[in-house]
Simulated scan of single mutants.
Amino acid sequence: MIDRVLILGGSGRVGSSVAADLVQHTPALITIAGRNSTVGAQISDRLGTNVQFQSFDLADVESLKSAIAAANLVIHCAGPFHYRDGSVLKLCIEAGVNYVDVSDHPSYTRKVMEYKSAAETAGVTAIVNTGIFPGISNSMVRQDVEQLDEPERIHLSYVVAGSGGAGVTVMRTTFLGLQRPFEVWMDGKWQEVKPYSDREIIQFPAPYGPVDVYWFDVPEAFTLPSTFPVKTVITKFGTVPRFYNFLTWSVARWWHPWLLRQTPVIEFLSYVSHFMTDVTDRLSGIGVVIRSEVTGKKAGKAARSLSTLVHPNTAISAGYGTGSVAQLLLSGQLNKPGVWAIEEALPTDLFQQTMQERGIQIQSELELSDG
């Protein structure tokens, strides 16, 4: 039997990248669902005969139920996840259908984690926070953690060039992340930090070089310390051109929090930012760089495991991250009933296998010292 995959938000930049990856690496029949019939039809025509478009809104519960019941796997790409609840996962559990998402907001991750026991009982594997960051980034951390005998500190940082090749939804996600302080795991305890604070200059691989990164509210801030026995987890984000960092920092520092909780304000900031990146993308590119650094001990010595990844298109690399997880679920290589963050569910050997199949190069090094 041929597998059938339903991609919610499949006509968006990330959703269509996931569909393109699945066309390349699986024989599955794919339904991309969204509200824009014109764009959806164009994407399905471009991706080939294994892809069809279905128009419906997530609020149309009956259409959503019917589409889920016809699938072997549902991939949720309909962000911003700040506004979503766990209803899609709930329907998947009721239908006995496996689930993957590209969620990138902590509140959503916490909501779907509440369905863990229900998914386990139903035999449904649900893997959240796939994509590029979170997603591939978290698997890079797992790979680094496994290099050490006693991991103590995780420092995970990302930089996106311009729009990253994604749509306005990514801009919304950025500004929604500035709304309120959040907790991070530092020195063995939870501490509150302000978004886009504590500027740090990190040396990234070429062509990025030194870039400013800042605290940002992401699911990894709590899923990584839940998964790995470390004392500190740092998750920081930045953009290039670097003046975008200053603009975002200014909004986080000087705009009243009440303003950032108003939908019209978020929409204004998002569309203005997207307009600006339409201009600067031609100079900066739309790529992404990830840097994972885990420090601790190995063989009784101080040790550092460092991994980096550079890709010229953020949206396409997100498609690789989610598509690879979907491929493993469809093939039966990955089967873990319950609800899991990606770093909990995906073994390093399978992660490395699927990245190699997609030509993704992750540079890794391990350093030992007597200090």
Results as ranks from 00 to 15, higher is better:
residue 347 P to V: 06
residue 326 A to C: 11
residue 346 L to G: 03
residue 341 A to E: 08
residue 345 A to I: 09
residue 330 L to E: 02
residue 356 Q to I: 01
residue 328 L to G: 04
residue 334 L to G: 03
residue 354 T to G: 08
residue 332 G to S: 09
residue 325 V to W: 03
residue 363 Q to K: 12
residue 334 L to F: 10
residue 351 F to H: 14
residue 349 D to I: 10
residue 348 T to F: 00
residue 330 L to V: 02
residue 352 Q to I: 09
residue 348 T to G: 01
residue 329 L to V: 07
residue 328 L to E: 12
residue 340 W to V: 00
residue 347 P to K: 10
residue 362 I to F: 04
residue 330 L to I: 06
residue 358 R to E: 08
residue 324 S to H: 10
residue 355 M to K: 04
residue 323 G to S: 13
residue 329 L to Q: 06
residue 353 Q to I: 05
residue 340 W to G: 05
residue 358 R to N: 15
residue 337 P to L: 08
residue 363 Q to C: 10
residue 331 S to K: 12
residue 325 V to P: 00
residue 327 Q to Y: 07
residue 327 Q to I: 02
residue 329 L to H: 05
residue 358 R to H: 14
residue 339 V to I: 11
residue 354 T to W: 02
residue 330 L to W: 08
residue 353 Q to G: 04
residue 352 Q to N: 12
residue 355 M to V: 07
residue 342 I to D: 12
residue 344 E to M: 14
residue 349 D to R: 13
residue 351 F to A: 06
residue 365 E to D: 13
residue 354 T to F: 06
residue 343 E to S: 10
residue 356 Q to Y: 04
residue 359 G to A: 04
residue 352 Q to T: 12
residue 343 E to A: 13
residue 347 P to H: 12
residue 325 V to N: 06
residue 350 L to E: 08
residue 342 I to M: 11
residue 359 G to S: 07
residue 364 S to L: 04
residue 364 S to N: 14
residue 366 L to F: 11
residue 323 G to H: 12
residue 330 L to G: 02
residue 325 V to Q: 06
residue 321 G to S: 07
residue 336 K to E: 12
residue 334 L to P: 06
residue 354 T to A: 01
residue 332 G to Y: 02
residue 362 I to Q: 01
residue 348 T to M: 00
residue 354 T to M: 11
